[in-house]
Structure formats: C-alpha cells, structure tokens
Design a protein around this nucleic acid. Structure first.
Lengths: 133, 133
DNA sequence: TTTCTTTGATTACATATGTAATACTATACT
DNA sequence: AGTATAGTATTACATATGTAATCAAAGAAA
C-alpha cells in the first residue's frame, strides 16, 4: 500500500468538534495565550472561559497543541498544520459518509441544487485549472 | 458558500461513526433483520454480534431507524434517506473543518491529486449540464 | 506585607460512544 | 414435555466529550 508523498502524515490524534474550534483560532494566528483564544472564541461561541481552557488543555495532552512555558503566561501553538488535519479528517469523513468517493459527494451536491449558481461557476473555474486530458 | 433550498430537513439526530456503518447497510437494503445486518458487517468489521445489536438499538432509540415488530424476528429500516443524512453531515463537516466553504476543500483536494483526472472530467461534464449564468 | 486578581492545575459530573456480556423468552428440536 | 437455540431486553464498564467549578500559585495593587 503506497502513499503518495505528503499523504503519509503521522497519526493525528482525533480532534473533537469543539476542539476544532480551538484549532481554528490557533491556525489563524500562533502562538497565542489562553486568554487570546478565549477572547476570540467568545465572539463566535457562548463557551465559558473555563470551558475553553479545558478544551485547550486537552489538545495539549493529546499532543495536538504545544505550549511555551517560558513566560509566566503560557502561549500555545498548533503541532500540526491545518492542511494535514483537514486532509485527514476529510478522508475519514468521505470514506464513512460517501463510501470513499469524494466525487459522489460533489455529484450529489451539484444535482441537489444545494450550491448556488455562483458556487457552481466557481467550481467550474477550479476544475478548469486542472489540465484537461 | 451557503446552501439553499430543500435544506430545511427536520433535525436529524446525530449519528456516530460506528452507527454510520449500520446505516450504510440499511440504506443498501431495507428492511433487514438484525441478523442480516450482523452478517453484512462481519465482512467489513470485526465487531461482535452483540456490539452491532447495541448500535442498532441505539439508532432505534434515537429515532433514526424504525422497527417492525409484527413478526417474531424484528426487521429494521432507516427513517431518513441517505441523501438527507449525507447532506446534513456534510454541511456541518464543511462548516467545522473548512469554515463553511466547500470551495476550500475542493481547491485543496484538487491540488493534492485526491481527485483523479477522470473524476475531474466527469465533474466537468456534470457541471456543464447545469445552465451557465 | 497583606490582599486581590489572573492564570494555571486539579476535580467534577452528565451524556455519548465503543464494545460488549448476561438474562430472559419464545420457538425448534429431541 | 424438557431442553437447546436464536432472538430480544437489560446491564456493564471504560474512554471521550461537553461543560464547567474549585483550588493553588504568582504577580499586581494597596
């Protein structure tokens, strides 16, 4: 079973739904203090600071987030790139939900008119950037 | 990239990873007895029959699967279509992982050659049948 | 220096999920 | 009729996740 190049990421620990929110703010900017993250998330969620802190700590335990403890106030940063996490999640998602074929998902979404015309045009553009064979 | 239209499905209870496997066999064919399902899944998983049964019962409790108890041996069937479940899952997935933009996912996967050239061509064809605006 | 405040560490607790085992019951077989 | 068997129902138990609160330590302020 060969993996093409960049596909062989080490096993990324599983990241729960809530934890993804934390990761998203860390990928947006890093390092950040817990308080930075709390402030960011209080705009988009209604989580209490303690809750956010717990999620952050769990990500540290899972070795998905690193901590710099040099300063009195710690700073946190992601240990995996957003791209590799996205790819891993997407692969397992597509496998579970669409039997492994991303095409199935796209076909369905195109047929169901779930995508706006703009979306479809955008898709065309993206697809057309790939050389036709 | 927002989704429109027939998007107002009733709230589908959340279906866990393992439960999706059960659903997949039920969507493939329904109704089926617990034993049918067990046999199906023993080919693709290493779950014990009791485990499969538990997952099935939980889906029934969640009102995602229905039961026909007329016969001595019950039969089970999905209460939601595969398409609507897929759509719901995909929307929450895309939102969480790609900030709501399916385009982001596509761009990434096209670049990474996760979609084959054939897939891409096929998608182009499908898209072209959609009216351009 | 005593105290308040901010941040980090530890603990809590309910529900969900993975992964079954045990108990009960209604046929099927002897 | 008595027992093995195949389903169904109930119970179990560890880990994960959502959602915090409490306790402790270290600067900041009085």
């Amino acid at each position: 079973m060969k993996m093409k190049g960049r596909n062989m990421e080490k096993n990324i620990p599983s990241i729960s739904e809530s934890e993804w929110e934390i990761m998203n703010v860390l990928w947006d900017k890093a390092p950040q203090t817990a308080n930075d993250i709390i402030l960011s998330l209080q705009e988009s969620t209604d989580w209490k600071p303690k809750t956010i802190r717990t999620l952050l700590d769990r990500l540290v335990q899972k070795d998905v987030v690193g901590v710099n403890k040099d300063q009195r106030v710690y700073t946190f940063y992601p240990l995996y790139s957003q791209e590799e996490c996205q790819r891993a999640e997407t692969e397992s998602f597509i496998k579970r939900i669409y039997g492994g074929a991303m095409k199935s998902m796209l076909v369905q979404f195109i047929h169901e008119d779930t995508l706006s015309d703009d979306d479809i045009n955008e898709l065309r553009t993206i697809l057309n950037k790939k050389p036709k064979k």
